[in-house]
Amino acid sequence: MTEGHSTLSAMVFVDLSLLTMLFLVAIAMLRSRHLFAVVMLSGIYSLLSAAFFVSLDAVDVAFTEAAVGAGISTVLMLAGMLLTSRREKPVMPGRAPIAMAVVFITGAALIYATIDMPAFGDANAPANAYVGKQYVERTPNEIAVPNIVTAVLASYRGFDTLGEVLVVFTAGLAVILLLGFGSARGGREVSDQEDE
């Protein structure tokens, strides 16, 4: 077995096992009624998908997934979980045939839609033919940023990114104004009955 083959098969192995683990974690999250376990599993799910994004070369998405999914949202879920009970109420085991049918039909339609997608790495695919090609050709000359994704986000679409940052900042500010700083430590618990 040559080096290239061994690298390729190792990467295929990594991708397959990451996807398998994602699937298992999702099933376990669905089946568990212990909310803390679900929160920890969702953190693991984010880490797994971040690793999968890195293996797909989507490094910026992986960054976001790791910071938001594994970091912040785990803590937020814990904060929410501690205000409620630790166990989910058991769901009645009744079946919902209409919902099941809708899910299956939607899934089948989505899978059918993927047949029309261009093949992986196809040079004539729309994603590679028009704007993307221009970015790839121009970025080394126009902008002194080695990573093309970074160049697109921070320079070509700089105003767009600035607007996004503004929106996220405003949203965070509003949440802080509503909830207050430091509610994790000794913040007043919210309850409907007692009025302190």
């Binding site: 953190g43 594994a70 785990t74 814990l78 501690l82 994790a184």
Partner: peptide
């Protein structure tokens, strides 16, 4: 990862 674990435990 480090920061998240510390945050969970502090909670």
């Amino acid at each position: 990862n480090f920061a998240a674990t510390i945050a969970i435990l502090r909670f």
